[in-house]
């Protein structure tokens, strides 16, 4: 992955957290806010190095927790564990298929909040949970499933724009050129 693309991932994580906090998004319509960090983690797990994946989990988690009532650092581990599992299996995943991207986004969007809530409950924090939380979870999963292929398309487009392009092989061979000459 190119350097501009790596930078773009961090910038997107920053902007995504800001957008989640400052824009109403789906909150007004569906009663839940969609989290874009799991979708970003999926992209990083399939395209970035392990170091970048770890840094994204750390910075993304810190950004998220700094604007939330979460204890600072609680989101880091769920993001990284989800990313690490995908990173370890990334050679077996058909990452170019939009369906696979959506499925991975949905799975990550399901696992990350679940792990975060479990960590918060194990830390003894009283949370706003109930039957309505299942609906919120479903909205987050659906949001992640939609957002992940879109993010992949954006990042891949960015990568094509800034990365070195592959030189296409031509069937033309100069040694086999039929040269015209006077008879």
């Amino acid at each position: 992955m190119s350097k501009p693309n790596t930078t773009l991932i961090y910038v997107t994580a920053f902007l995504a957290v800001f957008g989640q906090a400052s824009l109403p998004g789906l909150r007004e319509w569906f009663g839940a806010q969609v989290d874009l960090l799991p979708a970003l983690i999926v992209y990083a797990a399939l395209h970035a190095s392990l170091v970048n994946l770890g840094l994204l989990a750390v910075f993304g988690g810190l950004f998220f927790d700094s604007l939330s009532a979460n204890p600072l650092g609680i989101t880091i581990l769920p993001l990284f564990v989800t990313g690490l599992v995908l990173f370890q299996q990334r050679d077996l995943i058909l990452r170019d298929l939009a369906f696979a991207q959506g499925l991975l986004g949905a799975a990550a969007s399901a696992v990350v909040p679940l792990m975060t809530v479990l960590l918060l409950l194990s830390a003894g924090k009283p949370l706003l949970l109930g039957w309505g939380s299942l609906w919120q979870w479903a909205v987050m999963i659906a949001g992640g499933a939609v957002a992940t292929p879109v993010l992949f398309a954006v990042f891949n487009g960015f990568n094509h724009a800034f990365d070195y392009k592959l030189r296409s092989e031509s069937s033309f061979r100069p040694d086999r050129e039929i040269r015209r000459s006077r008879i």
Partner: peptide, 9 residues
């Protein structure tokens, strides 16, 4: 200026 990005707060 901002709302909690997490749904459980």
């Amino acid at each position: 200026v901002m709302r909690d990005p997490a749904n459980w707060w």
